[in-house]
Design a protein around this nucleic acid. Structure first.
Lengths: 210, 210
DNA sequence: GTTTATGGATATTGATACTATCCATGGCAG
DNA sequence: CTGCCATGGATAGTATCAATATCCATAAAC
């Protein structure tokens, strides 16, 4: 398959495919002559994955590259690959200020982790985001939202277990599990988010329409 | 309070405040003379909200403006304000192709809405995203993830109910409910996402570390 | 009364994600 | 075998976004 057909099959414009090749998101095709390469099914799959991450999940191209490098590496442990994916979808900020709200939030997060026996790296990017989000909710006068964190965590714990079970049950090789976990992590977020919006819209329609 | 103090109190640089004023994210201060305006507590709060939506939730500035216009309008129903917020946080695509995967996904979504008695506008942006996400999961060979949708929906339904209850129970006026719902919708997403990543990391650490 | 800050307008920057153009070469139709 | 379109590879250009920077006339503070 040459580039024009790859473009046709995947729906991605030729210049964009060239761009992804340049950025090493897509491995080069097999050169059959200095200006002729042949692409295969792997390229079609990879292109689909890239577009899903970029278009649906809104992951920046540079981060998609990181994730794919993790997937392609065969020396990296699954845990590290997942860490890479997590870093790709959270914008790593650092706790800037030490306001009372932030400290209270940090304490709440510590308590949450302890009570659920969640063991996470202390520099996990999601930790900072969670702390900042809770602190911000409080500083915006929405303490009652921050107080829902435990209820959210209950629900989250439930479907994360299901997710991991589904992913590990349906794949024989570690490579396939890795790919599945990464797709589940990133696209799963988009999925949950849309479900939540639909649930909200439905409740809102019943309660507040007209 | 003049602009320098507003900047100091909020931690937002003066040029950025000017930018938000230009873009009408922030209402102008009260002019006390042709080149002197005074800002109040409302501006500090608003600035905090803007930064939370932009930095934490990653909402584009133009969409933040839409959301705030909804909040400031006193003729708009809560349901419409929520719709605005939903549109702000989903990139509205339209179903491009009519592949078998997409049609299967659309059917699955219809069945889901029916079985849960969710009534949503047929042009809700989250509908398209949900359909595309399910279709993409299938096209990537992750049918077992797409099959988890019902389990996700269970969990989502649970915490959406809690959220709405918390928000309506703690606020006397419709204006406050609106603000709370919008903050809960948008920041809640960030919150849930970080909780999910933490839960995943914890499970992953136990299962696959080393 | 001089220095500094302000509001308002316009211009510039840096990052991101593509698109477009160019060119030498190679496959292929006639 | 020959003319032309497609290709790989490189470089340059575009659009958008979110700020920053610069100017300027004026007003406030010391």
């Amino acid at each position: 398959m040459r580039i024009a057909e790859l473009s046709r099959v995947s729906g991605v414009p030729v210049p964009t495919i060239k761009y992804y090749l340049r950025e090493n998101l897509l491995p080069p095709g097999e050169l059959t002559s200095p200006n002729q390469a042949s692409y295969g099914d792997l390229h079609v799959r990879r292109l689909r994955l890239i577009r899903a991450l970029v278009d649906l999940a809104g992951v920046p191209v540079a981060q998609v590259k990181e994730v794919l490098e993790g997937l392609d590496s065969d020396t990296m442990s699954l845990h590290d690959q997942i860490g890479r994916a997590h870093r790709a979808i959270t914008s790593h900020r650092q706790l800037t200020s030490c306001t009372p709200d932030t400290e209270a939030a940090a304490a709440q997060v510590d308590a949450l982790l302890a009570s659920r026996k969640w063991t996470v790296d202390s520099d996990a990017p999601a930790l900072t985001t969670l702390t900042e989000t809770i602190a911000t909710m409080r500083s915006l006068g929405q303490e009652h939202l921050a107080d829902l964190v435990n209820a959210y965590a209950d629900a989250v714990e439930k479907f994360t277990d299901l997710e991991i079970a589904a992913v590990t049950a349906n794949h024989p090789t570690p490579d396939q599990i890795a790919e599945s976990v990464i797709i589940g992590t990133i696209l799963g977020e988009t999925l949950i988010s849309s479900l939540r919006l639909l649930a909200q819209e439905s409740i809102s329609a019943h309660r507040w329409h007209q």
